[in-house]
Design a protein around this nucleic acid. Structure first.
Lengths: 339, 339
DNA sequence: CTGAAAGCGCTAACAG
DNA sequence: CTGTTAGCGCTTTCAG
């Protein structure tokens, strides 16, 4: 276990002061008018002995950790893990590391996690927040820590956010069903007040209302295992034999829904058309393939990291909330075509 | 931006020394025989003013960061993101946080990432390693940092590992095909020397050899986008019209394979039976459902974190390498049944 | 141009 | 039982 050498060791080797090395390392060589020759000598020695500054000491001193806290609903969900992948890439490219966690949409757990991240002096946050953490998020922001929300946002908060236009995209997907002659369209969604779910619900309702069609809403509560969800969907579909289409509010509801339909022996789209919010390879490969609203994941991550890095670099006192509302794409597949 | 208070501030408030507080906080109250009354008073004050020790300073002082580095091939892959989810849960429960990254199976990138993680003084590592980082891993271990490998291991390394029995499980899956009357079984795999892929290949080959059946091997190189992979698979299948079954070495190869089969208009299992290593909801929902070898993800994560925490707690000089070889489960579905 | 020295907040040996 | 003190390794002001 060889001892890591410090800036002092290095200074001794070179017979100069640690200060000078620090200046050189922090790009202040010019500013402090350190001779090119010395700079070269120092750099060479650093290379040779493989000196690496201790980032913990740096962080303690400067208050910056170069770590971003990424809090998602569930890192195992393909939507979130894809985002995590892209964010990671861009963050590392800029010298930032990522600490992640899954919130389970649980506000108590999330508060706990937020506090742990704060302990670690995370420089900035990217969060898909549950409801109920408004105060904590605002405290963070008041404290000068950048927080960017995504997927959903917290209205009573000063945090920037990047989301998609849930309302319009849902509206258009339902319109697509209506245009294909479907008249009894169900919406199976989460029993959630989060903005994205509320917006999807509104999109659904306004499309139906506009066309004088009946509403068929099924709200499923979040904390259930898949078996239970399937059972709820089965029972709902059995109670509503006149349905001819169903719109699922999230990808995993749709997956459970497809299992439910399989169980019931329903043919898609003959018995029931299917559309889903969020795309996934499952829907592409399914027979028949499932129409889905695909979120622009790449663009979303790009915006997230750009906004965050922007805030991180400038000690920008720009108080204006940045919001980005992206447009998802409706990918029409076999499950929603009238035969 | 309110100033966070330090242990010294707290000491002043209470008119005692920081040492005493430190002792109390680190569970040495009894050992140092500090009066219960004082302890209570200190704890109360801490609660009241919301004092939190600065973990950066703690880390700088103690050398422990309570951070685990998780390096996977690709955090967006469902296998790895599920593992990440479970590891996260268990780690947080034990006070550890997780920094993650995706290696892309790129040894250069991985070395870089390892070095960044070292900079941050990560306490221990969980890695699904690419080939070519043996030296770095051994250095870490020699340095006293616990490293646990999973999914695959590095033979020339002293790292512990948790893997599944790839050879036997593949052997048995191929046997299952043979017992169902399939005679021309292809193996579509990665052009990789990683242990798990080599073991799967061996399992395939020994089953065929034992039954005097012809080998049909297609190795696909790692760094390609999905389109290319599909094209390679299509061309392979076209060149081999006599195949009656195909075994895919990884989940995403199988997904690409299913797309290829769709393109070719092949019926499963009538034209071609399909079996895949790694399970996924896609395979369960596919029509027909796809037979797959499911890895015990829960058990795997449990072992990983248990071994790591064990090493982290004891300054155990136990030099013996711990290895865990778990048994995956063959889930027989419609895609491999002879009609 | 370069160096001395003061911390960042915490821990732990040592001394009462 | 409790306090003093010396760092952990780095940055940065201030003085040459």
């Amino acid at each position: 276990m060889k001892k890591k050498l410090s800036i002092v060791d290095l200074a001794k080797q070179l017979n100069i002061s640690p200060t000078t090395i620090s200046f050189i390392l922090n790009g202040k060589a010019k500013e402090k008018r350190i001779s090119d020759e010395l700079v070269k000598r120092v750099l060479k020695q650093i290379e040779e002995v493989g000196y690496k500054p201790n980032s913990l000491a740096q962080s303690l001193r400067t208050g910056k950790t170069m770590i971003i806290g990424l809090m998602v609903e569930d890192i195992a969900d393909p939507f979130f893990s894809s985002i995590a992948r892209l964010i990671e890439e861009k963050a590392y490219k800029n010298g930032y590391k990522i600490i992640y966690c899954s919130t389970d949409n649980d506000s108590v757990k999330t508060k706990d996690l937020l506090s742990m991240f704060q302990d670690r002096h995370v420089d900035g946050y990217i969060i898909s927040p549950p409801e109920g953490v408004e105060k904590e998020v605002n405290d963070l922001i008041d404290n000068g820590t950048p927080v960017i929300l995504f997927d959903r946002y917290l209205p009573d908060t000063n945090a920037d956010y990047v989301v998609v236009d849930n309302r319009t995209s849902t509206y258009e997907a339902v319109l697509h069903l209506i245009n294909n002659g479907y008249k009894n369209i169900a919406f199976i969604t989460l029993d959630s007040l989060q903005t994205q779910m509320q917006d999807r619900l509104q999109g659904y309702e306004s499309a139906l209302t506009q066309h004088n069609l009946p509403h068929h809403l099924k709200e499923i509560s979040f904390n259930q295992d898949e078996e239970q969800i399937i059972r709820h969907i089965v029972s709902f579909l059995e109670r509503k034999p006149n349905l001819d289409a169903v719109f699922f509010g999230t990808n995993y509801l749709c997956i459970s829904g497809l299992k439910a339909l399989k169980k019931l022996g329903k043919k898609i789209p003959e018995d029931l058309a299917v559309v889903c919010f969020d795309d996934d390879v499952v829907f592409e490969l399914h027979s028949p393939s499932i129409t889905a609203i695909a979120q622009p994941i790449e663009e979303m991550s790009e915006k997230l990291i750009t906004i965050l890095l922007g805030k991180l670099n400038k000690a920008s006192k720009v108080k204006k909330i940045q919001t980005d509302i992206l447009s998802p794409e409706l990918i029409i597949r076999a499950s929603s075509r009238r035969l």
